[in-house]
Design a protein around this nucleic acid. Sequence first.
DNA 1: ATAGGTGCAAAAGGTTTGCAATCAA
DNA 2: TTGATTGCAAACCTTTTGCACCTAT
Lengths: 149, 149
Amino acid sequence: MDIPKELRESGLKATFPRLRVLQLFQDGKNKHLSADDVYRLLREEDIDLGLATVYRVLMQFATAGILIRRQFDSVASVFELNEGGHHDHLVCTNCGKMEEFLDSSIEERQEEVARTRGFTLMEHSLSLYGTCAACIDIVAARQKKIRRG
Amino acid sequence: MDIPKELRESGLKATFPRLRVLQLFQDGKNKHLSADDVYRLLREEDIDLGLATVYRVLMQFATAGILIRRQFDSVASVFELNEGGHHDHLVCTNCGKMEEFLDSSIEERQEEVARTRGFTLMEHSLSLYGTCAACIDIVAARQKKIRRG
DNA sequence: ATAGGTGCAAAAGGTTTGCAATCAA
DNA sequence: TTGATTGCAAACCTTTTGCACCTAT
């Protein structure tokens, strides 16, 4: 899609920093980026922009619905491209690998839980934390070591 | 339960700050408290303790399994008494009211989602955000007003 | 007596904001 | 031209840490 146009339609001027930030997400190499990730990645390229600008741009994009802001259990919040469909996350606590999923049965039950208690559901946040197939042996070995003391 | 004893069994000395913090949670008036909440509530009573101590005590309790640390979408994390059974939360974004729930169907599907993708599930975080029955009219009216401009 | 705990103040992240200079439209 | 945007530095908030003093056992 034509990025400058996409920005203008959100009422945002197509400035250099905004274009580069959006490109970074659309490149798709890293789907989930913190403000600091964005700042560092752009500096690694060539671009010399302020961290405050990165924060402002990310927030503007989130408000405009271009990005989604996520708060995993870590300290810093991360952003990802809003590609329309809702999804939840499965995160490997060892290597950081992240998979998206959507389980209609879970979605339905959430609605049901809210309805039962008289709540009108607006949104939800579901993150599963575990160990991915590639890390399970490493983690198991580490646990064993700890138990041995 | 005998609080000083409970503390000693966790390898923690039964000091005045620790006793008061634990009492606060056991009073049950507020189930979910941030470090600052605890700090402020204890000061309102009489007790003059440092915020750093509150943070230290809360973390020690969480490590000892006496409290559970939760990170809702807000900035500060909150703590609640660990009463054994796992549960998730339903939060009213208007009044802050919080209800606990446990849905076995959701729990099962989560396991299934992880298994399907080769993950070994360790934990998860699920929070539903919406409007409770008592707030729905207020919120609806506010929405209408915004739409009118 | 002494290992462990506390208060204070300072530091450390992450994020936001005021302001003068700069830029897109 | 002019309102929006940027960079910088300073401020903010939550949380952590160093250190000298204190206390439960």
